[in-house]
Amino acid sequence: MFSIGDFARLGLVSVRMLRHYDAIGLLRPAHVDPVSGYRSYQAAQLSRLNRIVAIKDLGFTLEQVRAILDEKVSTEELHGMVRLRRAQLEARISADLARLRSVEARLRTIEKEGYMRTAEVVLKRVEPVRVAELSARAASYDGEDIGPVIQPLFTELCRRLEAASARITGPGLAYYVAEDDGSVMVHACMPAALESREGHDFAVVDLPAIDTAATIIHHGSMEQVGPTFQALAHWIEENGYHSRALAREISLHCPENLDEWVTELQMEVVPAQ
C-alpha cells in the first residue's frame, strides 16, 4: 500500500487531484483508515490513473472519462484515440497559424496605407484564352479559406492535363465568383492547346477578352497580396474608372519559395460616367 502522497508522486499527479477523483468516484483508494481517514492506494491502481490522465488530456470531461473507462478501453484503443486527437490538434494549430498569418498580413496592409504603389498600375487589353479548369467552393475570400482550396486544385489540374497529354500554353491563372450565400467559387485554370471541349475530366472554358484591364504585379506570397490589391483599388478610383469584374490572378513565376512568387492581378475597368 502507498500513502496518497506517495501514490501522487508515483502517478505524477497532485494529491488534490487524487482527492477529487475519490470524491467523484473516478478513482477510489484501495483502503481508507476508519479512524484517521488516511487514504492508501495499491500499485495496480496506477494503471487506472494512467488511463484517467491520458483520456482527460485528450480533451474529454471527467464524466466522459468515466464512461470510457467503464467500457474497459484497451491500450490499442487508447492509441487510436491519441492518434485521432493528435490529428485534431494539428488541424487546429494549422488553422490558428493560418489565422495568425492573415492577421499579420492585414496589419502589414494597414502599415502601408498612404504608401500605395499606384504608379505601377498598367492599363492593357487582355486577349481571350482557352483554359482547362477545375473549380471548388471556399467559405470566403479570406486567405485561410482560399489557400487550402486553390492549391490542391492546381495540383490536380496539372496531373489531369499531363494524363491527357495536353500541352500547356501559358501561365496558370485563377478567378473567383461570389455566391449568394457568401461563399466563393474558386476557379483554377491552365491555358492549354485543346481542340475539343468534350471528353475531358476537367472543364474546357473560353475566357473572354478584357478590353481594358487595370493590372499590377504582386511580388511574394499570395497571403501578402492585400496591399497590392488595395493599391489597385486606389488607382482605379483615383483615375476615374469603375471596376466591372473581379480580378484574375496570373501566376507568372511560382518557385517553391513563396516569397519569390510573381503574380499579375487583372481587373476589368470602364471609365466612370
Rank of each mutant, 00 (worst) to 15 (best):
H187A: 00
L123C: 02
R99K: 12
Y141E: 04
S140T: 03
S221Q: 03
P171E: 04
S74G: 10
Y115L: 02
Q230S: 13
I24W: 02
S165W: 15
V225G: 07
A174D: 04
W235I: 12
R92E: 15
C189K: 02
R86F: 11
K72H: 15
L107T: 12
V184N: 07
E133V: 09
I110G: 01
L58K: 05
K56Y: 08
M267K: 11
S135P: 00
E179A: 03
A213I: 01
N257A: 04
S196K: 07
I146A: 08
P34R: 14
L161T: 01
A178G: 11
E77A: 12
Y115A: 03
L58M: 13
D145M: 03
M267G: 06
A233H: 10
D201F: 10
R117E: 14
L153V: 01
A209W: 01
A272Q: 15
V126D: 15
R101C: 01
D6F: 14
P171V: 03
L153Y: 01
E133R: 10
W261A: 01
I146M: 13
I168W: 11
R159G: 10
E90C: 11
L194M: 05
R137Y: 11
R48T: 04
A188D: 07
F7M: 07
L49S: 03
D181V: 05
